[in-house]
């Protein structure tokens, strides 16, 4: 459980900084933040499947 809380926090932090780079260009922070959370979480799940649980 603690592991996934850690992953969740890491995903939010990464998404925050990514969205912040877009905010710097003058675009909507929240739109990019939400999309980034989805994308980063998706990539994490993909990596977890590919690397941590190889078939």
């Amino acid at each position: 459980m603690a592991y996934y809380i850690g992953v969740g926090i890491a995903v939010v932090i990464i998404a925050f900084f990514m969205a912040a780079t877009q905010k710097a260009r003058g675009y909507n922070f929240w739109r990019y933040f939400i999309v980034s959370i989805v994308v980063v979480a998706g990539i994490y799940m993909m990596i977890e499947n590919l690397v941590l649980n190889p078939k």
Binding site: A19, A20, T21, K23, A24, R25, G26, F29
Partner: peptide
């Protein structure tokens, strides 16, 4: 429009 070293959100 902009020339920035590092990003400047907010």
């Amino acid at each position: 429009e902009k020339f920035y070293l590092f990003f400047n959100p907010w």
